[in-house]
Computed example of a mutant assay.
Amino acid sequence: MKIVYMGTPDFAVPALDALVAAGHDIAAVYSQPPRPAGRGKKLMPTPVQARAEALGLPVRTPLSLKGAEEQAAFAALGADIAVVAAYGLILPQAVLDAPRLGCLNIHASLLPRWRGAAPIQRAILAGDAETGVTIMAMEAGLDTGPMLAEVRTPIDGKTAGMLTDELARSGAALMVEVLADLSAFPPRAQPEEGVTYAAKIAKQEARIDFAAGAAQAERQIRAFNPVPGAFFLLNGERFRILSAGIEAQGGAPGAIVDDRLLIGCGADSIRPIMIQRAGKGAMGVEELLRGYPIPAGTKLDPVDA
């Protein structure tokens, strides 16, 4: 097929590779514009733009698709279909209608659960037992279009980073399978029941609320790994917890229960395993405590301070 591919982050790279490997004709790759990054604030291409250029594919990075000129340029590609994966820009109706077979989206949830911007993180935070990828025919609503196929996977203690990698690969394989025989995947309407929305992650959500209990704190740690990183403050300094376990011992929320950084969460506690001080590399808790003892009885900075 002649395909326009539209994607931006690392999640969208495996599908581009898979479509190229399957022999499809990629007429153009759309990605969000380069943005300043790093200490020098140098303009950096998105992961999808960088990969497309490495593959020798034509890349377009418009700020918006709302203008008539951009829409005409998109239509002029004469694509059979557009494949979209975490592109991040709204597709106007003129764009949705331009490809002969419409636009298909790789969405990282089991629709209609977790429509929206952050489905992987929201599934972890909610304690969902499983998640997956849905191939959806796009329409004007927010992830409301009919579904063609899905693949499921247990969450089972995985971090957002692990799930992102896994779902990117499985979504890529599923999209190739769907495009190989579209007639075998008739669209079906999403159920009206079970709709939830995955709002964009706000930075303040990454601060761990130990009063919510150890189970929820551990979900925060997994949901925000690798970014933005779940953290607590001690004497105004930020400590990111990269991995942790739950222990049955109780303790006052936000208080250090023992000399090995067990953190009280009420009826139970969180035991950090890997941790990162601001400006430092990741390290085991034992290594941290050798250079920065945090004795039992220490109280972390309160969340509502």
Rank of each mutant, 00 (worst) to 15 (best):
V20G: 07
V84M: 03
P112Q: 09
D209I: 09
L65D: 05
S170D: 09
I241S: 10
L65R: 01
G40K: 14
I275D: 05
K66C: 07
D209Q: 08
Q93N: 10
A72I: 12
G266T: 12
R100E: 14
I120N: 05
L16A: 04
L104K: 02
G264W: 06
E177I: 12
A278Y: 13
V84F: 03
G67R: 10
I263K: 00
I155M: 10
L182I: 11
L289W: 06
G297W: 02
K280F: 15
R39K: 15
A296F: 09
G254D: 03
E130H: 08
L16D: 04
D97L: 03
A172G: 08
G171P: 06
L104C: 09
R277A: 12
A18C: 02
G127I: 03
I3F: 03
G127N: 13
A149T: 12
A28K: 09
A230T: 11
G88F: 12
G7V: 03
P34Y: 09
M175Y: 09
D259Q: 14
K42S: 10
L148A: 07
M175I: 11
T159G: 12
G297F: 13
L125T: 04
A215T: 15
D165A: 15
G284P: 13
A12I: 00
E287P: 00
G127M: 06
R188P: 05
S243P: 04
P187A: 10
Q32D: 08
L167A: 09
R51C: 07
G78M: 02
I246K: 10
